[in-house]
Amino acid sequence: VTTYKLVINGKTLKGETTTKAVDAETAEKAFKQYANDNGVDGVWTYDDATKTFTVTEMV
């Protein structure tokens, strides 16, 4: 189990959260659900070296 981080660069919501998951795919599903629940829709990137997902909403 690995800890993954999500950085949110939203128009109205900004911040970070973490989740523990067995792999990046599982973490991504959890983060996308979290973003969807919070009304964040944007471009996703993932950095495997730092285990960090970033979602950026276009203005």
Rank of each mutant, 00 (worst) to 15 (best):
V1R: 07
V1Y: 13
V1N: 10
V1A: 12
T2S: 10
T2G: 06
T2Q: 08
T2N: 07
T2R: 13
T2D: 12
T2Y: 11
T2F: 07
T2H: 07
T3C: 07
T3F: 07
T3D: 12
T3P: 05
Y4Q: 00
Y4G: 00
Y4W: 11
Y4I: 01
Y4R: 00
K5V: 08
K5H: 08
K5C: 04
K5E: 03
K5Y: 06
K5F: 05
L6N: 01
L6K: 00
V7L: 07
V7G: 02
I8Q: 02
I8L: 10
I8Y: 12
N9A: 12
N9K: 06
N9W: 09
N9E: 09
N9Q: 09
N9V: 07
G10L: 15
G10N: 10
G10C: 06
G10H: 12
G10K: 05
G10W: 13
G10R: 04
K11Q: 14
K11P: 15
K11R: 14
T12A: 12
T12G: 13
T12L: 15
T12C: 08
T12K: 03
T12H: 14
L13P: 02
L13F: 15
L13C: 07
L13T: 04
L13W: 09
L13S: 06
K14H: 15
K14L: 13
K14E: 13
K14M: 08
G15S: 09
G15F: 15
G15H: 15
E16G: 03
E16A: 03
E16R: 03
E16P: 02
E16I: 03
E16Y: 06
E16N: 03
E16Q: 04
E16D: 05
E16L: 03
T17I: 12
T17K: 15
T17A: 13
T17C: 08
T17R: 15
T17Y: 14
T18K: 11
T18D: 14
T18C: 06
T18N: 05
T19P: 01
T19L: 07
T19V: 12
K20Y: 13
K20E: 15
K20H: 10
K20G: 07
K20A: 10
K20T: 12
K20M: 14
K20P: 11
A21Q: 09
A21G: 03
A21R: 03
A21P: 01
V22F: 12
D23A: 05
D23R: 04
D23L: 07
D23K: 05
A24K: 12
A24R: 14
E25D: 15
E25M: 09
E25F: 06
E25G: 11
E25C: 05
T26G: 11
T26S: 10
T26M: 12
T26N: 10
A27Q: 01
A27N: 00
A27F: 01
E28P: 00
E28A: 11
E28G: 10
E28Q: 11
E28M: 10
K29T: 12
K29M: 13
K29Q: 13
A30F: 12
A30R: 06
A30M: 15
A30V: 10
A30G: 11
A30N: 13
F31G: 00
F31Q: 00
F31N: 00
F31T: 00
F31P: 00
K32Y: 10
K32L: 13
K32V: 14
K32R: 14
K32S: 05
K32C: 04
K32A: 08
K32P: 00
Q33F: 07
Q33V: 10
Q33I: 12
Q33H: 12
Q33A: 11
Y34V: 08
Y34D: 02
Y34R: 02
Y34T: 03
A35D: 01
A35F: 03
A35T: 07
A35H: 02
N36R: 10
N36M: 12
N36T: 10
D37R: 07
D37K: 06
D37I: 11
D37S: 09
D37A: 08
D37N: 11
D37L: 09
D37H: 09
D37E: 14
N38W: 13
N38M: 15
N38V: 12
N38S: 09
N38P: 01
G39N: 15
G39K: 12
G39I: 04
G39S: 13
V40D: 01
V40I: 15
V40W: 05
V40P: 02
V40H: 05
V40E: 02
D41C: 05
D41F: 10
D41Y: 09
G42A: 02
G42M: 02
G42Q: 02
G42V: 01
V43R: 10
V43A: 11
V43D: 09
V43Y: 07
V43M: 11
V43G: 09
W44R: 00
W44D: 00
W44I: 03
W44A: 01
W44S: 01
W44C: 01
W44L: 03
T45P: 00
T45K: 08
Y46E: 00
Y46V: 01
Y46R: 02
Y46T: 01
Y46M: 02
Y46H: 02
Y46P: 00
D47W: 04
D47M: 04
D47E: 08
D47I: 07
D47A: 05
D47V: 10
D47R: 03
D48I: 15
D48C: 04
D48G: 10
D48A: 14
A49L: 14
T50L: 12
T50G: 07
T50I: 11
T50V: 09
K51P: 00
K51C: 05
K51Q: 11
K51L: 11
K51W: 07
K51A: 07
T52S: 07
T52K: 05
T52C: 04
T52Y: 02
T52A: 04
F53C: 01
F53Q: 00
F53V: 01
F53H: 02
F53L: 01
F53P: 00
T54W: 11
T54H: 05
T54R: 05
T54K: 06
V55L: 08
V55R: 00
V55P: 00
V55M: 07
V55F: 04
V55S: 02
T56R: 07
T56Y: 08
T56F: 06
E57G: 03
E57M: 03
E57Y: 05
E57R: 02
M58V: 11
M58R: 09
M58Y: 15
M58D: 11
M58T: 13
M58G: 12
M58W: 10
V59G: 07
V59P: 15
